[in-house]
Computed example of a mutant assay.
Amino acid sequence: MTAPFASFGNLSIDDLVFVDGTTQWAVPGGNAVYAALGMAVWGERPSVVAPFGPDYPIAKLEDRLDLSHCPQIPLTLRDWGLYEEDGSRQFIFRSATRNWDDFSPRAMDVRVGIGAAHLAPLPWERHVDLVGALRAAGTTLLSIDLDDRKLAGVSLDAVARLMASVDLFLPSRQDGRAIFPDLSPADTVRRLRDLSPDTPLIALKCGADGCVAHATGSRDLIELPAFPIAAVDATGAGDTFCGGTLIGYARTRDPVQALLHGAVSASFCVESVGCTGLLEGTPAMAEGRLLQFRNDVAHLAA
Rank of each mutant, 00 (worst) to 15 (best):
V112G: 01
V112P: 05
G113N: 04
I114R: 02
G115R: 04
G115A: 12
G115S: 12
A116M: 01
L119T: 10
P121S: 13
P121K: 09
P121L: 05
L122A: 01
L122E: 00
L122F: 07
L122I: 11
P123A: 07
R126M: 08
R126H: 15
H127I: 03
V128C: 11
D129E: 15
D129C: 01
D129N: 13
L130C: 10
L130M: 13
A133M: 03
A136Q: 08
A137T: 06
T139M: 02
S143K: 07
I144V: 15
I144L: 15
L146F: 11
L146Y: 07
D147N: 15
D147T: 11
K150A: 14
L151F: 10
L151G: 06
A152W: 03
V154F: 00
S155N: 10
L156W: 00
L156K: 12
L156I: 05
D157Y: 04
A158G: 00
V159S: 05
V159N: 03
A160Q: 09
R161P: 02
R161Q: 11
M163W: 00
M163G: 09
A164F: 05
A164P: 00
S165Y: 13
V166I: 09
V166P: 04
V166Q: 04
L168A: 03
L168D: 01
L168S: 06
L170D: 11
L170P: 06
L170Y: 12
P171I: 09
P171Q: 02
R173W: 02
R173C: 02
R173S: 13
R173L: 12
Q174G: 08
D175W: 00
D175P: 09
R177I: 02
R177Y: 06
A178Q: 14
I179H: 03
I179E: 07
I179V: 14
I179L: 11
F180R: 05
F180Y: 09
F180Q: 06
D182A: 07
D182H: 08
S184Q: 03
S184I: 05
P185M: 05
D187E: 15
T188P: 04
T188G: 00
V189I: 12
V189Q: 11
V189T: 11
R191T: 09
R191N: 12
L192K: 02
R193A: 13
R193Q: 13
D194M: 13
L195D: 10
D198G: 01
D198L: 10
D198C: 08
D198M: 08
L201D: 01
A203I: 04
A203Q: 06
A203N: 10
L204F: 08
K205C: 13
C206L: 07
G207V: 04
G207Y: 00
A208R: 12
A208H: 11
C211M: 15
H214I: 12
H214T: 04
A215L: 03
A215C: 08
G217M: 09
G217V: 10
S218F: 14
R219Q: 14
D220R: 14
D220H: 14
D220I: 04
L221I: 13
L221N: 06
L221V: 13
I222D: 06
L224Q: 06
A226N: 10
F227Y: 15
F227I: 12
F227E: 15
I229F: 00
A230K: 13
A231T: 15
V232S: 09
A234W: 15
A234M: 14
A234R: 15
T235M: 07
G236K: 14
G236N: 09
D239L: 00
D239T: 06
T240Y: 15
T240V: 13
